[in-house]
């Protein structure tokens, strides 16, 4: 299927990149293998401007109001939110565990930082994910090159600033290669 190219409308503020929204919900009956992941992940839409972002975002359920095992992903257009994607295969992510009740606010702030190009790491950012789980929620930001320490440190420091994280917040970095090996995201 050939999709229509998304571009900013008249009078809108263009984004540095187009971004695609994805939604994933685990169906309990299926095993958590790659195939069922690809089958269960759904594209919601793509935005090219600040105004298009708000239009789409405002229609979505806030992550803190979701129930069950589900994820929202916002990735640069053309990058699938999968470890195996060309842009992700040498990459990794910062993981921030959040106690229940914080996901919606932190999710919005991490999105605004990404869309506004606050990370200053060139082309390195791939996307952001909020994962709703039973006891806690998890925010992650994916970048292209896991072994580029200058980049990963800068992302960590920017996250601390833009999210205004409590000082005791634990941040972990995990390479997608390790996620593939232990078949686990976190």
């Amino acid at each position: 299927v050939r999709r229509k190219a998304i571009s900013p409308g008249a009078g809108e503020h263009p984004l540095q990149y187009n971004y695609t929204f994805w939604y994933f919900r685990r169906t309990p009956s299926r095993p958590a293998n790659t195939q069922s992941y690809e089958q269960n992940i759904r594209q919601i839409g793509t935005v090219a401007s600040v105004e298009q972002f708000w239009k789409l975002y405002s229609h979505l359920v806030r992550p803190g109001d979701l129930i069950g095992h589900s994820d929202f992903h916002i990735f640069k257009e053309g990058i699938k939110p999968m470890w195996e994607d060309e842009a992700n295969k040498n990459g990794g992510k910062w993981i921030i565990r959040l106690r229940k009740g914080l996901a919606s606010r932190f999710w919005e702030n991490i999105i605004l930082a990404m869309l506004g190009e606050q990370f200053m790491v060139g082309e390195e950012i791939c996307g952001v994910v909020v994962s709703i789980r039973f006891q806690e929620d998890i925010l992650s930001i994916w970048n292209k090159t896991a072994n580029d320490q200058v980049t990963t440190s800068r992302i960590r420091d920017t996250l601390r600033r833009v999210l205004n994280l409590p000082p005791n917040t634990i941040m972990e970095y995990k390479t997608h290669n390790d996620s593939l090996k232990d078949n686990s995201s976190f």
């Binding site: 503020h13 540095q16 600040v50 506004g116 190009e117 606050q118």
Partner: peptide, 21 residues
């Protein structure tokens, strides 16, 4: 090239634009 950078405050202001509805 030039990067299109927006701060949080500006992005939040755009939310109330008629174009964002």
């Amino acid at each position: 090239g030039t990067r299109i950078i927006y701060d949080r405050k500006f992005l939040l202001e755009c939310r109330s634009s008629p174009l964002a509805r």
